[in-house]
Design a protein around this nucleic acid. Structure first.
Lengths: 214, 214
DNA sequence: CCTACCGATCGGTAGG
DNA sequence: CCTACCGATCGGTAGG
């Protein structure tokens, strides 16, 4: 349905896209309720009724904003997971891509967290529909790693994956307050590195070789 | 200032407290912008102007809601940290209390995350003022643990503490969507256990004894 | 703690 | 894509 609408609007696609882009940014920064249609319209230099020609209601625009975010990760996750050759590389690349995705545009993480808080039912369906398959995929690899004894045995794959997802999202969504926790100038890099170490250490069992000279 | 006002209003404290309680709940559930003063007033069976006698403005009520949340943890953190006898116990008790605090009332976590998103500057000051001392305290213990070689050496204490704080907050704030990640009936327990395992494994170096028979 | 009321802003419609 | 306009709701005030 959404795909059809996008196809039909191809001639006026740029206006629609501009509105959507502004909406995503403002929704992420100020929240859905605090962002008026007028504010979004102003960002693309049109009036509110003109905006409502492209999106029938504010609700429709909110849904479109969430879906556009959803679509953008649908394109990157598949290839990453299938490319890697070994568990370590698969972990590094998957985590790396996810982190880059939210680091380069923290608005994405903010919008995601806001949507999770404001529209839990809507998001639950989107997650089940579009994220669930990849989570299952990852969980399968984790179970295999547990059988091979390279991953901690006392670990629930689904719970681990959820924790990492939530941690990535929140770390970048709440980036504005990082300086309250970390005084250092490169707080973002410290947070990112710790996030990676955190996820890695909690997943893989310690390498005996590394462990001995410690 | 806030303390003085509370003292002065002691005779009418119950009304004020009832308003504040309703405000915290509604702000947490629906966000600041979506919660009207009328909705809060209705919860305590009064009219909007009566509410504005107790709190001069919506902004004042929002600040009071955040501060009340802040006060409630100010009372529990101090004793916990000083009580424990060894690093393991200190970790378990501190983490346990923090988890219980948000698990028994997820509204607290929701309000906190919403405030972090909506009022980053205000929250940064609150964190620096009231949470920073305890974070420094914890960081000091972590550094000692690193010297004693029971805690991972490649770990930034401040970044680790921030990550755990964010993970606890988000895990309970986003509890409503847990079932999209975990199918199991006891998803909350799985998430909680994984959270603890996660934080523990990422902090302490593996025990050589445990490691050998694995 | 109330009634009565205010200007401002909201999402959205009519009609072109 | 616009102007003109709508009813509803918002936070807040006056006055008692």
């Amino acid at each position: 349905m959404a795909a059809t609408q996008i196809a039909l609007d191809k001639s006026k696609g740029s206006a629609r896209e501009a509105i959507l882009e502004a909406a995503v940014r403002l929704f992420a920064q100020h929240g859905f309720a605090k962002t008026s249609l007028k504010a979004i319209a102003q960002e693309v230099d049109i009036r509110t009724p003109s905006l409502l020609y492209h999106f029938p209601s504010k609700q429709a625009l909110e849904t479109a904003a969430i879906e556009s975010l959803n679509n953008s990760w649908q394109n990157i996750l598949p290839q990453i997971l299938s490319e890697a050759k070994n568990p370590g590389e698969r972990f590094d690349r998957t985590l790396g891509v996810c982190i880059e995705f939210f680091q380069e545009e923290p608005t994405r993480a903010q919008l995601f967290v806001r949507a999770l808080l404001d529209k839990p039912d809507e998001l639950k369906e989107i997650i089940k529909r579009d994220l669930q398959p990849w989570l299952k995929f990852i969980a399968k690899y984790i179970r295999r790693g547990q059988e091979e004894e390279i991953i901690h045995s006392d670990l629930d794959p689904e719970a681990y994956t959820m924790s990492v997802t939530i941690l990535i999202l929140s770390t970048f969504a709440l980036g504005q307050v990082r300086s309250a926790f970390i005084d250092s100038g490169n707080a973002e890099m410290l947070a990112k590195n710790e996030l990676i170490r955190f996820a890695r250490t909690a997943l893989f069992r310690p390498n005996r070789m590394e462990n001995n000279h410690g």
